[in-house]
Structure formats: C-alpha cells, structure tokens
Amino acid sequence: MRFRRAAVAGVAVLALALASACNDNGSTSGDGGENLEKVSYLTSFNLFGREAYAYVALEKGYFKDAGFDVTINPGSGTVDVMKLVAGGQADYGIGDFTGTVITMGKQKLPVTTVGMIHQRSLAAIVALQGGSITKAEDLVGKKIGDQPGSTNTVMFPLYAKAAGIPADQTKFVPNPPPQLPQLLAAGTVDGIGQFVVGVPLVEKADPKKRKAVVLPYGDKLPDLYGNAIITRSDLAKDHPDQVKRFTGALLKGLQDAIDDPEGAAKTMKKYAPNLDVDVATQELKLMKEYVKPEGFTGPLGDVDTARVQKVIDALVDAKQVGTDIKPADVVDGALAPKG
C-alpha cells in the first residue's frame, strides 16, 4: 500500500508539472464538436521537430476523421509519459520502447505499447569533431551530459556491453536538455546524450560550426526499436477500436511528415511558435530512415513479437530487467498495425 500511495503521489506531482508546462507552452486541440471523443496525447519530449507528425494529423483532420478531438501536450521523457498515461492524465503518449521495457521491468505500470514510430533506435552519444570522442572505446573515462533518467542514460549499460566497454567508467553529468548543446560546445562535457535527429540542433549551437560525431546505439544494437505509442492497458483491453482508430490517424500524420518534412515543420510551427523550421525540417529528414529503414517492408508502425523478445533477451543479458518479463507484458500485438 505504501508503494501504491507513493506512486499515486508521484503521478499527481507529474500532473501538476505537466499542467504548468502546458500553461507555458500551450496545448493544442482540434476543432472539437459534440460527436467527437476527447483524447489527450503527450509528445515524447517537449516540442521538437521530430514530434511534428502529431500536429500534421491534427492539422489535416486525420484525428477528426477518426472521431477524435485531440489535445496535444509536450511530454517530459519516457518514464514521465508512462506514469502520466498510467495515472489517467493522458490517454496516449510517445516513449522510447527500450526505456519502456526497462521501466516495466522495475515497476508494473498499467500501460502497453500498440505500435512503433521508429523501427530503429534514435538513441546516441553525440560529440563534436576535434574533441576526445570518435568511437565507442573513447567513452571510457569521459563525461557525458544528459538529463537524469533519460533514454540515453537508462540504455547506456546495454550499449556499453554491446560495445565491449565498462559502463561504470563513463560518467553521466546531470544537466537539463536545453543546455546540453551549449555545454558540449563549451567543452564542459565530452559528449551528450542525444537522439540522432537532434544533430542539427547540436551543430547550430556550436559557434565554431563543427560537425557532430554521432555514436548511435542502434549500430551496436540493431534490434532496438525507437519511440513507441503508449496507452493504458485498460483502454487497450476495453476499447480496442478506439486505439486502432487513434493509432491509424497518428501514423497517417507520420507518413505525411516523412514525405514532406518542410511542410510538416511549417505545420508544427503554427502550434509551437518558437520552433525553428529549418532545424525541425532537418530533424524530420534524418528521422525518415528510422521510421522506414532500408529493407523494411512492414506496415508503418509495425511490431514484430519475435524482435520484441530479442530486445527483452538483450536487456536480461545486460541485467537491466528480470527473466520474468514477456512480450505480452509490454506490447499488445493484436492492436499493432498489420500489413
């Protein structure tokens, strides 16, 4: 009971934080209407260009056509998104799949994933040319700036094991995400935890205009997925048609965003005035190969249960989760997109 009370209290605090964020950044909603079902959605993290597909789905009426009046709010990372969805403060959200599995291995939140945004992981360590990091082996003894509990930090032991380096000899220095590119440029840290699509923002922040050095986790761990669509377990069980309709509309927006990155970035700017359209466009261009990698033939959002098991096996081997977790504990395969 103590754990349950603590969990509820934690969700309440997170909800208040989200409300504050929404007051600062604004939330966005469709046209509404008496016959539309109100649904709330969280981005994976803040309002970067990589999140544009949800705004495309909103702007083009895909959500409305599916019967929804959707409110989009900025998320604050995988774990927080999971907790807010689990607590009913949001109906759907986006979170890194590997981070989701690791979190579910530690606390059995009532959430599940129902589709993949990225067929490859976006997680990476990013440095700048001329620095001390050019390959995975260089990470030993280095300082990496990142937000505590971020996807990159949580997944680092798994990456380090695959790269053959000791995870405990790389120091992660806690810093808020908006400051990371500047800290890297100043040489305060040797590298930063960053999604691959964040490279344009990192390079723009460097006054010396150096190119980024990118160490993608997916190069060592090709089975890892990137971001996934998260919803509550009871919603998936009791309202599967709603979940399929929502996922279908969101993925339509995703397809349009990777087909027309600049158009998607301009659409998102209508809802996020501070967005840099050029940087957002570059993010979306980089994201395309992670949504539909070379050789990928499945439907957009595809989930392969056998591959999910491989991810779990890798996490078990790296001692990130226990042996009791199964694919059905983290994915609802029946609701995932089918070809």
Rank of each mutant, 00 (worst) to 15 (best):
R4P: 00
G10Q: 13
A17Y: 03
S20W: 14
C22M: 13
N35C: 06
S44Q: 03
R50C: 13
A52Y: 01
D69S: 15
V70H: 05
T71E: 14
T71N: 03
V79R: 15
K83E: 10
Y92H: 07
G95L: 10
G95I: 11
F97P: 04
K106S: 11
K108L: 01
L109N: 02
T112M: 06
M116S: 06
R120T: 13
A124C: 09
V126G: 01
A127C: 09
I133C: 07
T134W: 00
E137G: 06
L139N: 00
I144R: 01
G149P: 06
M155Y: 02
M155E: 15
P157Y: 12
G164Y: 06
N175L: 14
P176C: 06
P177G: 00
Q182Y: 12
A185H: 02
D190C: 06
I192R: 03
G193E: 02
Q194I: 00
G198T: 08
G198Q: 05
P200L: 13
P200Q: 13
L201M: 09
V202K: 06
E203L: 11
R210V: 09
R210I: 10
R210N: 07
A212F: 10
V213K: 00
P216R: 11
L224R: 00
G226S: 08
A228P: 01
I229T: 09
D234V: 11
D234T: 13
L235V: 15
V243W: 04
D260M: 05
Y271W: 04
V277D: 10
T281Q: 01
L284Q: 08
E294T: 14
G298Q: 07
P299T: 09
P299H: 04
G301F: 09
T305C: 07
R307T: 12
V308I: 14
L315M: 14
V316C: 05
V321M: 10
P327V: 13
D329R: 12
V330S: 08
